[in-house]
Amino acid sequence: MMSLEDLIKKIQEAAKRALKEGKAEVVLGYQAGTTPMAVAPLFARTEGDCDKLVWSNFAKTNLSTYLPELKDKKVAIIAKGCDARSAVGQVVEHQIPRENVYVIGVPCTGMVDLEALKSKEARPVAASDEDMATIKLRGDGWETNIAKEEILRRNCKTCICRTPKMADEVIGDEVPSMTPDDYADLKELAAKSPEEKMAYFKGMVKDCLRCYACRNACPLCYCPVCFVDETRPQWLGKSQDEMDTFVFHLLRGFHCAGRCTGCGACEAACPVGIKVREFNRIMEEEVQKDWNYIPGLDWEQKPPLTTYRPDDEADFIR
């Protein structure tokens, strides 16, 4: 496996090349963060900027979220599989012109789940270091190494696109994909009674603040007016009413159907730790099962709710 240093070098080279060859006016990537265990987005416009580009096991932000704002510019994006898939979705949904986005794909072995990391090492961290497989933490008089494998983000554990093959170029060595999500938990849930299911999901969202951080982090939530902000007619109450909150998550999940690439940005953004992606996964499983559709893998694909087959199955309709 390529070392982290080599990978960063390759990223910087690719970024410079993209600028030089006119493939992009801006390269969207990560730069080192100001605190441990964090990186920040970087909009590199010059060769000098490109030297600041890094790669990290903490690069959880889905950079494609920034693409629609930059749609009039030619942008190169340093993309892990999930970022690249989101970019594909944005192109398919006409949010960015295909000719304005240049995807520099980075094979990815998964990102760190900060909550999981915290459960392994709860002491205050003064500094962090990392290589491809290990996270090294240092605190007041202590040092510890944690294997990344053990603290992967949930979506990374079932990632089917660790190497973004649809990218315009892929740097680094190809990484095999993980075993796809088998939705075992959802299957188990399906066997439960309606009361238990309802209680489970209502419990899941009971702490929701309706801050919409999940929505704002989602690269595919770009509507000028979200249904939650609709006023004429106002359809969804804005308070933290249990039912309104429940319906918010339900419909947010529905709106992601056939579009969500499972990047996990929503979950990562939630300040109260709600597993908001669960609603998306319900749809994801169904979309795959019914229409054999996986979003974000093909620049030409038609989202499942923009098309149909005359023989689509729907046994529940009598």
């Binding site: 006409h94 949010q95 770009y222 000028p224 007016v225 038609k302 989202p303 709710l305 923009t306």
Partner: peptide
Amino acid sequence: QAKCSGCGVCVAVCPYSAIEF
């Protein structure tokens, strides 16, 4: 149009090709 994101769902589903960008 103030609410339109230009995602193209309506363009795709219209059975009469009556919607355009």
